[in-house]
């Protein structure tokens, strides 16, 4: 499908409009004040224009996040579309920032904007990248942790798209469990 915008200038519309968010850690401010909406886009061409103008994931300072969410969903547990959901979490080793992070994050973004999870794409809320000294993390957030068919389908497709070895296990954690945990360990609800 194409939007006619004149000869040679067609843009390809996406199924959803997406919002890109940036989080920069400043301990003197409350969490929400460190979260900034960068821009929104709804075509393939605009996605690439934005992607080529912002810093690569591997160039961000530790403590920064990128988040890409469907327009109307805020990248936080409290949003009504996230509250009962959870995330497929990919935790990277420190050395993967240089070797793998940019490729894995781009692949995650392409899964989202291309609606790679077919009819279960409806369940996808967004994706979050955390750049951290102790190891970076990438996650796809979905809206209903109890929706096992959707969650497991998304997990299987996502793992395949990332090109992870079958030996690597990734886990899905409910936000409700992450929010109430008493230590850094959150139990996996599903694994693929």
């Amino acid at each position: 499908r194409k939007l006619p915008l004149g000869e040679g200038l067609e843009k390809h519309p996406l199924e959803n409009r997406w919002a890109l968010w940036f989080f920069k850690n400043d301990r003197n401010r409350v969490w929400q004040d460190n979260l900034h909406l960068v821009t929104k886009f709804e075509t393939v061409e605009d996605f690439w224009a934005i992607h080529s103008h912002i810093k690569l994931a591997s160039k961000l300072s530790s403590g920064c996040d990128y988040a890409l969410f469907k327009d109307g969903i805020e990248p936080m547990w409290e949003d009504s579309r996230n509250k009962h959901g959870g995330r497929w979490l990919v935790s990277l080793a420190k050395q993967q920032r240089q070797s793998n992070l940019d490729r894995l994050w781009l692949e995650t973004l392409l899964c989202l904007i291309g609606e790679a999870f077919e009819e279960y794409s409806e369940e996808v809320c967004g994706a979050v990248l955390n750049v951290r000294t102790k190891g970076d993390k990438i996650a796809i957030w979905t809206s209903e942790a109890e929706n096992q068919p959707a969650v497991t389908f998304i997990g299987r497709v996502y793992k395949e798209r990332l090109g992870l070895s079958p030996k690597v296990i990734i886990g899905y954690q409910a936000h409700a469990d992450t929010a109430t945990k008493s230590n850094s360990f959150t139990k996996n609800k599903f694994v693929v």
């Binding site: 996406l14 393939v44 392409l110």
Partner: peptide, 18 residues
């Protein structure tokens, strides 16, 4: 049934088109 799905190959081609 009218969801707009783009595969990886198509999205990557769009990156390189003028």
């Amino acid at each position: 049934g009218t969801r707009i799905i783009y595969d990886r190959k198509f999205l990557m081609e769009c990156r390189n088109s003028p």
